[in-house]
Simulated assay, not measured.
Amino acid sequence: MIIWRSTGPALCTAAVMTALLAGCGKMPSSSYQGYVEGEYLYLSAPQAGYLKSLDAPRGSRVVPGQALFAVATDPDAQALAEAEARTGSAREKVENLKEPRRQPEIARLQANLRAAEANLRLSLSRLRQQQALAERKFVSQGVLDAAVNAFDQATAQVEAARQELASYQSTFGRQAEVRGAEADLRAATALAAQKRWVVDSKAVSAPAAGEVAETFYRPGEWVPAGAAVASLLPDARRRIRFYVPETVIATFKPGQSVDASCDGCAIPIHATIDFIAPQAEYTPPVIYSRGSREKLVFRVEAAPGPEQAAALRPGLPVDVYLMER
């Protein structure tokens, strides 16, 4: 429970305190002054451009993923289209290299092989005839050499036609060419992804639920790269900050629950301590008196529950109580 700060007579305040304490059976410790603190997010686009739209004006509440603003994508959109076109061309090239030739082309090569084999048989027959005539001294050695040369050429043509047919029946190109085309495809895909990120990053959405605290540009204005266009106060980053004397700081621990009251608050604000400053707010002298030591205070921060955080306004004064169970 919380002890409410009242603007009425002291007697009324005492009566309310007595009633509350009797009802809950707990004794609060002394109150500590503090305020609500907001930790803002300053949202920007990594690329410069003209502000195209401001989808969430200041003061509006947003949910995660809701559009906040967008920067014009020209000429990055054209660069993305070019990169995607190059990616498609590289993909078609890889698929073409991996697939076998068309059937009419293979039939043509098979016919070429049959013609080369027929020519080889004819060359062999002529060679035998010339050899028989050369043995009887009916032809000169030059005629025999020409027949041998024709046979060798026919043999080479058959082998060339056979190898070409085998290549067309498997895949077009060698494996090294396929790997090179696949590398080109990966490079084009990476470039397209980079261009797509540039375009997508110019449309900024809310990373968390909260309130748009301020906007710094209007549609049509030039926004430099990295310049904040809007500030967002997430509900989860509204905190209660208060100060505790050094005489009692040892009684505060992370994870402890505290209650806070404020002017106009209808119900207590429940929060959980999650940070205690490791040192005092100001640097004391190396040797100081007991009187100066009593002035030391430590900053303590507590996170309110999500159901109450959205209603807290930064700068709102609060009185915090550490409830003793």
Rank of each mutant, 00 (worst) to 15 (best):
D152R: 07
Q110F: 11
A132M: 14
R91Y: 12
E84K: 15
D152C: 00
E294G: 10
N149G: 00
A213F: 15
R325M: 01
E214Y: 13
A266I: 05
R101S: 01
I3S: 04
G23S: 10
R114K: 05
A116E: 05
P284L: 09
E294L: 14
A228F: 09
Q194E: 13
T155D: 06
A19L: 14
L11W: 11
A72T: 07
A228C: 06
A181N: 04
S125I: 06
Y40H: 10
C262I: 10
E324Y: 03
Y32Q: 05
S257M: 13
P317V: 10
V300P: 06
A266V: 06
S167P: 00
A277K: 04
I269L: 08
V223Q: 02
P57S: 10
R241L: 05
R238D: 05
F275L: 04
L322Y: 09
E135T: 10
E82L: 15
R101G: 00
Y168T: 00
A187F: 07
G315Q: 09
A236P: 02
G23N: 08
D235Q: 03
E177K: 08
S6N: 15
S123C: 00
P28D: 06
Q308P: 03
I269R: 00
Y40M: 09
E84S: 14
L43K: 06
Y321T: 01
P46H: 01
Q163C: 06
V320D: 04
Q175T: 13
V229R: 04
A203V: 08
P219Y: 07
K93W: 01
G173L: 02
A277Q: 02
D74Y: 15
A190G: 06
L312I: 01
M17L: 11
F151T: 02
R293Q: 13
N96P: 00
G23E: 12
Y40L: 09
A134C: 03
K93Q: 06
G59H: 09
P284A: 03
D263P: 10
Q129N: 12
L191D: 07
V204Q: 01
G210W: 07
A48D: 01
N119W: 02
A134G: 07
T7L: 15
T272R: 14
M1T: 09
M1A: 08
K253H: 08
Y217N: 03
Q157L: 11
R136A: 12
A19T: 14
Q129E: 15
A15S: 11
A115Y: 07
I240Q: 01
P46C: 01
A277S: 13
P75A: 05
S167V: 11
A147T: 03
L144G: 03
R293Y: 12
L322M: 07
E95M: 08
F172R: 14
P28C: 06
Y243I: 03
Q47G: 00
F151Q: 04
N112T: 04
A310M: 00
E37Y: 15
A81T: 12
D259S: 04
S29K: 11
K195L: 03
L11C: 00
F151H: 04
A228Y: 09
P314R: 06
P75F: 14
K98F: 00
G65Q: 07
V223L: 02
C265S: 09
V94F: 07
F275V: 00
G38Q: 10
D76H: 15
Q78C: 02
E92H: 11
A209K: 08
E39R: 15
A56W: 08
A146E: 14
G226I: 13
E99L: 02
V223D: 01
P219Q: 05
V258T: 01
D152T: 11
G173Q: 08
I3T: 12
